[in-house]
Design a protein around this nucleic acid. Structure first.
Lengths: 211, 211
DNA sequence: AGGTGTGAAATCGTTCACAGCC
DNA sequence: GGCTGTGAACGATTTCACACCT
């Protein structure tokens, strides 16, 4: 089945909301309630959820517990992924410590940096290796995903090193630069300054855009 | 004029590229070259640039210096904005130190936190106040933009405090939660874990998506 | 009555294809 | 010949509207 990217993004948010509702012992929820809480139209919510089968009850709504399991199943990867984080600077450390990166679906198992002060050390329980050793270490540790928190000039080199032996399947790039990826490699970029620039643009052209 | 969000996002990237080209003394560049370097189609680049007038030369390409000025003018806000950063944790500090946040268009002028250890201190030259004092401080310091690097449960409260006296116009939210914003307030959310989840989803459904 | 599921319509964004200029 | 500017075609995503179930 093919699912559009905006749908996946919303599914992640549905799960987060449902998880909270479930903990709060809410039993039933309607598409309108979900939409209001997350800022989407009810029809959007219903369309997203109906892609994966009829899960709600007409005239009633969705059973929170059941829907949560359903959405989780859709999103959950079939196995756990090993992740490598490249660039142990402030941003890298912040991500290491980020609650979002506590999951049973992925785990940051190794760090990479170029600084002699960092290589050989351990940060938040993860060993740091030299970037030059990436190809071997990635293979050895079965790492298939890279998170890049490196300066912009280093990003492309990291992608190249990660794909050298072909083992890296996905990259989450936090550096302020575009990278060219070989076909098959999935790259997501989160460009912090671009987000702020967009915000400024729409502030200038006041009130044209909201989320 | 109304400009689509994906266009703004690309414009920011054009400017970044043109800036580098200009420093490298490149004089002329074609839409194809720009596209290849950033991963867009040439026709996309031309369409984006043509929204703001005819700036290229047919048969030749774009004058880098001229195009850079042009794109900068489109993106530049009319004046400098004062920004407040809420939540001086690891992520907050990483952003404070982030080169992307060095600009003549905006400046982080104040920090807010709830921790007694942080309130009253100075971080990277910026004073930290208590979140409870936000409404007054924001007004006093003429802050119109908030960056939120707070835990998810605090995000909504920060937006509410920021809009209490109506002075906040834009919010860049890094916390893993959706916030409901009053109309007129522009909210951009950068949800780090959502990005990773999307990546995992497409890794699972292998090779359906890129960038 | 109330709320889901879903084709059809509308909107939004990208790509094509070609006329026009250098 | 090469490259821009742009209407028109296409593709993707959202919203509408209503049949259908409880």
């Amino acid at each position: 089945m093919k699912v559009a990217e905006p749908t996946v993004e919303r599914l992640v948010q549905y799960r987060r909301l449902l998880d909270r509702m479930d903990r709060d012992k809410v039993q039933v929820i309607s598409s309108k309630e979900i939409g209001d809480m997350l800022g989407f139209k009810a029809s959007q919510v219903r369309k997203d959820l109906s892609y994966f089968g009829e899960i709600g009850k007409r005239g009633v709504g969705y059973n929170v517990d059941r829907l949560l399991k359903h959405v989780s199943d859709i999103l959950s990867p079939p196995r756990k992924w090993n992740v490598g984080l490249v660039g142990v600077g402030r941003l890298g450390e912040a991500l290491l410590d980020h609650k979002a990166f506590l999951s049973d679906k992925y785990e940051i198992v190794a760090l990479f940096d170029v600084s002699d002060e960092k290589v050989g050390e351990t940060f938040f329980g993860r060993p740091c290796f030299h970037v030059d050793d990436m190809p071997e270490k990635l293979e050895e540790m079965d790492i298939e995903i890279l998170i890049l928190t490196v300066p912009k000039d280093a990003a492309q080199r990291c992608v190249d090193a990660g794909t050298e032996k072909g083992q890296i399947k996905g990259v989450l790039n936090f550096s302020p630069s575009s990278v060219v990826a070989p076909p098959g490699l999935i790259v997501y970029s989160v460009d912090i300054s671009v987000e702020l620039e967009k915000l400024l643009f729409y502030l200038k052209h006041e009130g044209t855009k909201s989320i």
